[in-house]
């Protein structure tokens, strides 16, 4: 059995992150992590006619750049697992049309990157594939118009609102090698504590993140001290506060080792309110900053907890609450 405890998968063959690429928009390119990104766009359109086309192109470009860093070409990739936030995940579908890699489309809202890493690791660890590409994207303007208001509308954003990250991240998962590998993954449950404010996704997702973390530690018999860094995907500042409170109630003090990708990606002068969000938030921070830090041995064990708010504009209008989900992936340096 490759599953331990309630919800955790063990990858005994430790699939490796062979290569990764992160592309971001201009705003993210001004943030504190700018040196870790492979490409910073000059504008949100990326030479395309619509924001949707730009998002699709970013995802495709991220995949191409991740492949270029290896000796492989696109034909050498067994499967592509990709997703995004748009209706019917068009960015991923349309990028897959161009890339022509056998494709499975995924949706886990902003947790899609963690979801794709887990499934890619399962395929590689199980011997069903040697190289699996994972990729996700999000775009501030495409998300605004789908989930909120027209971008030129003169409204005020609430202090708990988050800023959807424009960007795409791709990571190629392959056979065990020296460097960052995936050792454990905990698949989370959908948890809903009745939050109905679509301007406050952090609060909606924090209970799921706290639950997944607690179960991950229990299943693996690990503690916070076993990790050098624990990162949630996009809880933002309010969600991070709540995550710390909820974890402390369960007897787990997170301390300085814990942060959130949504907080790391922007600095406070960028006026994003509670921080970043979107599929690309966790993806570009992981593919850029985290993997680079692992390679440089700044960190050796990092737990990424991808968080997703599983709402739709229709469910919000019908007065439904926002279910949250979180998946944890343990990235560790392996010396072969």
């Amino acid at each position: 059995m490759k599953k331990i405890g309630q919800q955790t998968l063990v990858f005994s063959n430790t699939p490796a992150v062979v290569s990764a690429a992160a592309i971001v928009g201009p705003k993210e390119g001004q943030g504190p992590l700018k040196i870790n990104f492979d490409l910073i766009l000059k504008d949100n359109l990326f030479g395309e006619k619509s924001w949707e086309k730009a998002e699709c192109k970013m995802l495709q470009e991220a995949v191409n750049r991740a492949v270029d860093k290896t000796d492989l070409d696109l034909d050498g990739i067994d499967f592509l697992l990709a997703g995004d936030l748009l209706n019917q995940t068009i960015s991923a579908n349309f990028a897959a049309r161009q890339l022509a890699i056998p494709f499975l489309g995924l949706y886990g809202a902003c947790s899609t990157f963690a979801e794709s890493l887990i499934l890619a690791s399962v395929l590689v660890d199980g011997g069903y594939a040697t190289h699996v590409m994972t990729a996700v994207s999000s775009h501030h303007d495409t998300a605004e118009r789908q989930f909120r208001f027209p971008t030129e509308l003169g409204n005020q954003r609430s202090p708990s609102a988050q800023w959807t990250v424009t960007g795409a991240g791709a990571a190629l998962i392959g056979p065990k090698q020296e460097g960052p590998c995936i050792t454990y993954a905990t698949i989370g449950k959908v948890i809903d504590l009745g939050i109905k404010d679509s301007n406050d996704m952090g609060s909606a997702m924090a209970p799921a993140a706290a639950d997944t973390l607690a179960i991950h530690l229990k299943d693996t018999s690990r503690s916070i001290d076993d990790y050098d860094l624990i990162l949630t995907g996009d809880l933002g500042s309010l969600g991070k506060f709540l995550m710390e409170h909820l974890s402390e109630r369960q007897g787990c003090r997170l301390g300085d080792k814990y942060s959130d990708c949504g907080i790391l990606i922007y600095d406070s002068s960028q006026d994003t309110h509670a921080g970043g969000s979107g599929c690309a938030c966790a993806a570009v921070v992981t593919c850029g900053y985290v993997l680079e830090s692992l390679r440089l041995k700044k960190y050796n064990k990092v737990l990424i907890i991808g968080t997703g708010a599983l709402l739709s504009p229709t469910s919000m209008q019908q007065g439904e609450s926002i279910p949250g989900i979180a998946h944890a992936v343990s990235l560790e340096n392996i010396n072969s």
């Binding site: 208001f149 027209p150 971008t151 030129e152 509308l153 003169g154 409204n155 954003r157």
Partner: peptide
């Protein structure tokens, strides 16, 4: 206008200029 609205909130939504903004921003968006 969106920058004015970000600063002033209801101050620029309530006057008729805000109504124009609501219609034109939607028309541009789609």
């Amino acid at each position: 206008y969106d920058n004015i609205g970000k600063f002033s909130g209801a101050g620029s939504i309530i006057p008729i200029t805000g109504f124009a903004n609501a219609i034109v921003s939607s028309a541009m968006e789609w």
